[in-house]
Amino acid sequence: MIEINGVSKSYNRATVKAVDNVSLTVNNGEIFGFLGPNGAGKTTLIKMITGILNADAGSIRINGYNISEDPISAKMQFGFVPDDPNIFARLSGIEYLNFIADIYQVPGSQRGSRIKQLLQRFDMLNAAGDRIQSYSHGMKQKIVVIGALLHDPPVWILDEPMTGLDPRSSFDLKEMMREHADAGKTVFFSTHVLDVAEKVCDRLAIINKGKVIFCGSMQEIRAHARENESLENLFLELTEDA
């Protein structure tokens, strides 16, 4: 469960508000989509949830742990996939995964089989021994996704996870997200593609210019968009993006 309460973040000495007083609750057992055009504030909010950025105001709790007050416990709760897979290019895939497993204290008894199983699922078995610098963008994305799922975190936080994935892996990831949510756990992911959100999410929020302008199920959004012009315009924009 993720609880976001009145969170704000400004850049350039408070002249640009990237995230403006956002409050959201992502419940257990749901896939929550975070939708918005490029530059709307999605990544900034995700960076605050994961502790990469400090919020100017408000609080964020992950499974009850406050990210700024009890960062280590909060960080143990989630697995994170960033929008740009910049990872240690001079480590091999397996070295990177073992590093992540050590950091998240994945028990030695399950480690090898879990790594193998995930590598197999993402068709990365034959690349695990090679340096990450030899990977294509999609392969880097896959190894980051595997790293994020390695410690079987209750909360998944994924920033544009489908970007760069081939259709097969993208399908697999969506299936895994569904399984995870059905097991009573939480998936929070951002996308700027409405089509993806529509197919996968139980609920979603739309963010624009730093503010959440709507939060609810897909049907609710559609109904609401007919009455609200600005939401309708944004909705059209997102549909065009797809």
């Binding site: 070295e95 994945v106 028990p107 021994g129």
Partner: peptide, 19 residues
């Protein structure tokens, strides 16, 4: 950079995934 794209053996996994 070049890569071997070789599947690691069971022994490799044991060695490389030591906690």
């Amino acid at each position: 950079t070049s890569a071997r794209r070789k599947v690691l053996s069971h022994k490799d996994y044991q060695k490389l995934t030591n906690p």
